[in-house]
Design a binder for these strands. Sequence first.
DNA 1: CCTATCTTGGATCGATCAGTACAAGATGGC
DNA 2: GCCATCTTGTACTGATCGATCCAAGATAGG
Lengths: 199, 199
Amino acid sequence: MAGKKAFDADVAVEAAMLVFWERGYADSSIDVLGAAMGLGRSSFYNAFGDKATLFQRCLARYGSRYGERYEQALGSQTADVRAALTSFFDVTLERIADPDVPRGCLVAQSVIASPTLPASAAAQADALLGSQRKRITTALLGAGVAASTADDVALQLAAANQSLAVLSRTSLSTEGLEAVARAAVSAAMTELRSRRLNP
Amino acid sequence: MAGKKAFDADVAVEAAMLVFWERGYADSSIDVLGAAMGLGRSSFYNAFGDKATLFQRCLARYGSRYGERYEQALGSQTADVRAALTSFFDVTLERIADPDVPRGCLVAQSVIASPTLPASAAAQADALLGSQRKRITTALLGAGVAASTADDVALQLAAANQSLAVLSRTSLSTEGLEAVARAAVSAAMTELRSRRLNP
DNA sequence: CCTATCTTGGATCGATCAGTACAAGATGGC
DNA sequence: GCCATCTTGTACTGATCGATCCAAGATAGG
């Protein structure tokens, strides 16, 4: 026992995030979460309130962690749209290939489970998907793409990115996932080119 | 009480399918399933064995029900690939718009939940996604598309279709969903055209 | 050193989980 | 009409769920 916290809240939330990501909200019990976080029940509830609250913290962590990476990928090559979009999908592909982290996507998983999620968590997941779309739109606008075109193309790209969340939990090979990403970039480039010629 | 079954197994499985589809495997308790199916616990276990077995029957039902519709959509206009692919996505869009049925897709949802699903159910969901891809490939081959092109394009289309499963549980509008489908068809047509010119 | 405050382990709560036991009752073959 | 067989309602099992309680013990301020 103790009088000073015997754990790092950041490390604990990270561990919980991985559990939710792997198993989903419903299948992540307090016991499993606590074990992964290295916490007893008292410490768990004392520090994080309840399961739903912790889940939302994990969602936020996931959103800002990967949101930053996506943002950086899109922003690093403003002159070359194709390269920027390729980098964008590389964030997803590298996350899927990372053995230290589950496959799939916590946001996509949460959106799909939203009918049985606490309402505020479902709303948060929905908002995170919206942010993702907006990130792409902003990047396209920054590259001089017309607003309506940027909106449409960003939606396609966000959709393709979500499809990877599903496909990464199937028996589809890594090459298959890469092919889906590559084709999405190519389709976006074709669309951008076509709309510039026929606005 | 009775000596003859007081329910129609087909109707009961249909009701269970809708519950699993809406709530996912983990969040569908025997109580909720039984209530939807109009069954007491005894009848439930007597007729369907256990939850996992029933779930696999529901997966199979879902797969054959919509599999047939996709097959029909793809096969109805063999002369016009664009029309066939548009019909294909219409099956999904109409399902999403159908108020009698949940949004999302039982297969996509199950694939995402596969780490915590009974292994055989996870394998079944994976196989159903494979069948879906194969259906599209076959249709493209029937339209004279080269084998490797058909494989690649079918994967893109299956991926886009899965993205709709995620997006249909977000706040994205119906028009947004339709736009995703339309763009996927256009991208596929562009790819087919490009590969015919540069095989 | 003393005490107010905080953290922790462990017991415990009522609810719900999947699944079983069993007796009551209805049916069909004879 | 009789009896073996099947179905059903209800009660129940042990396990697990999320969450709370409380006492033990550690810390920090004075």
